[in-house]
Structures are given as structure tokens and as C-alpha cells.
Simulated scan of single mutants.
Amino acid sequence: MKLHKESKGTLLVASIVVALFTFLSVHYLGMLSLLVIVPLLILYGLVFWFFRVPKREILDHKENVIAPVDGKVVMIKEVYEDEFLKDKAIQVSIFMSPLNVHICRYPVSGNVIYKKYHPGKYLVAWHEKSSTENERTTVAVESMTNHKVVFRQIAGYVARRIVFYCTLGDEAKAGHEFGFIKFGSRMDVFLPLDSEIICKIGDKTKGGVDVIARMKE
């Protein structure tokens, strides 16, 4: 199983903690140490599972908007995006549980025209206000259909680190990685009002593969 590069620090700390508690529990608890070691190993395995990098066949897209993350669609609504677009848009929000792959991918192809990191709170990621109050990043892409598409990584109650690798002027390719969020979190995509929304609330998405919307040229 291939692991994401963001796993290195977390796995090092997790390995030290597991080794230390295993040693102490065996030394002081004897056979009862299994009550400590077994749950620790399960949690240790879940950390590996969280940082997995699944193999995905990423296709080329022009009009299609691709699911940027693995997760569950929790919101589809018309909103006013006041950071970059300064206009109404359709917001599609996808919540990621700690068991989902947390690689963040470009939802559309084009060029990166805006990026900004915002420090903030750590409300639960499905809270509507988390989009504007939590720690987050905002990225905008001028799409191949000549639309400005904004998407936002949002830290959740558990997440404490957001990473995004893109820079202004980068070529964005729908389905390809641009960042990572550690543990539970959310991603919002803001689309033109005339976009055809393919997904619906409650849908489970596969990042880089599933089409969630289409934009008119």
C-alpha cells in the first residue's frame, strides 16, 4: 500500500507512542497488556489506512466538474461567495470522515488565478459556518470553459493541518492532486449558477473519478 508523503511526521509520532505504551504495558501489566496493545494496534492500522494513496484512473475533462475528494455530499445550495467571486454561486460541499482518503484534487481543469490561506476556528466540518469561520484555504481556477470556479479546503473539529501545493499560474488538471487535509474535514466547490448539478445530497463521491456537475461552454 502506497502512503502519502504527508504521513511521515504523523507515522513517526504514532510509532513512538505505540512502542512506548507497548513496552510499559508489557512491563507493568503482564498478560493484561493485551487490553492496551490490541486497541493501540487497531488505531495504528487506522492511521496507515487514513494516509493510503489509492490507484485511480484520472481522465481528461473540460466541461465536467470532478469530485475533489472522497466523501459524502452534505450541501447543495445557492450562496453568495464573498471572497473571490463576489457573486452568487452554487455551493457543493463534501464531508470527509477520518476513514476517507484525504487527498484533495482539482475539480476542474484550467489555470490557478487565486490562492489564500485563512487561519480560523475548528467547528465540526459539517457545520454550515465552517466554510467561513474555520481554518481553510481558498483556490480559484479559470476553467477551460472560461468560468471562474472557487474551491475551499476546510479543517474540521479533528483536522489541524491543511496543505495545498498549487501556486498562481499553475495548470490545474481535474482529478489531479493539489493538496491534503489531515483527518476529518470538508471541501466546498462554488460553481456558476447555470451549471448542471449531477450529484445529490447523500451521494458518496470518489475523488478524481465521479462527475458532480457540468458547466456550459
Rank of each mutant, 00 (worst) to 15 (best):
N146E: 05
L20S: 14
T22K: 04
A159H: 02
H147T: 02
I181P: 00
I181L: 01
E142G: 00
R214D: 05
A14L: 09
L41T: 10
K86Q: 13
L11F: 08
S143R: 11
D194H: 11
H176K: 15
E81H: 09
P192G: 10
Y114A: 09
K116A: 03
V158Y: 01
E63W: 03
F95G: 00
K5G: 13
T10I: 14
E135C: 00
L32A: 13
A19W: 07
V158A: 04
F23Q: 08
H118R: 05
R56S: 00
E6R: 12
K86N: 15
I90V: 15
G120I: 08
Y165K: 13
F180T: 11
V139A: 05
L85I: 08
S109G: 11
V124L: 07
Y157I: 11
V74P: 02
E171F: 00
I94M: 02
V26L: 15
K88W: 09
L43Y: 12
A14C: 03
G184E: 15
D70C: 01
L99A: 14
R161P: 05
D70V: 00
L99R: 11
K88H: 14
H127T: 13
A140M: 08
T138W: 01
K200H: 12
S185W: 07
V79E: 10
K121H: 11
I58C: 01
L20D: 01
F178Y: 15
V18F: 12
S15G: 06
D188T: 13
V13N: 03
F21W: 12
I58G: 06
R152H: 03
T10M: 11
L59M: 12
L32Q: 09
V74R: 01
P192V: 07
L34E: 06
P107L: 08
V101T: 14
H118Y: 15
L11G: 08
E63S: 15
T132I: 14
K200Q: 14
R105G: 00
R105L: 09
E135I: 05
K200F: 05
E177Y: 01
I103F: 03
A125N: 00
H118T: 02
L12V: 13
A155C: 00
V150F: 01
E142P: 03
V26H: 03
T132E: 13
G179W: 06
G30M: 11
E196Q: 13
I154D: 02
E128T: 11
N111Q: 12
L12C: 05
H102G: 10
D82K: 12
